[in-house]
Amino acid sequence: MDPQQLYTRNAPALLRKCERMLGNRADAEDIVQQLFVDLIRRGRTDVDLPYLYRAATHRCLNRIRDRRRRRELLDRHGEGLLWREPPRIDDRLLSMEMVARLVDRLDERGGEVFALHFVDGIDQGEVAAMIGTSRRTVVKHVARIRRLARELS
């Protein structure tokens, strides 16, 4: 696909997704722009939205994990406040601070499951297919995330 078409067609969905994860538009724009730069630079422009969702997920998680930039992220968001479409674990809405603490305790795969299942609302079987693992593994990650969320709240 033409890079410009790839960008204009998919960037709005990815901006909304990253905004949901990070709680602010500015960080979402940074991440989505750099993602497309990297894709275009590497000639990987035949990609679909599920793939882009995963790629954006990784980068949003890295932004949350980046301790040097966390203060800025929390300040932009308004620490402790809930944003318009906050992530939730069951009936518990998560603040940005809570998301950051949770992500700190998860490994890379666990973070990916958290974002795709609890933030994006993708069911466990689909998450397994998207990230190339078994449903059983995803179920284990989900159970651990629920347990961690209880401990941290």
Partner: peptide, 9 residues
């Protein structure tokens, strides 16, 4: 960048 799996290709 993530490697392609299943749906994200």
């Amino acid at each position: 960048l993530p490697e392609p799996h299943g749906e994200g290709t």
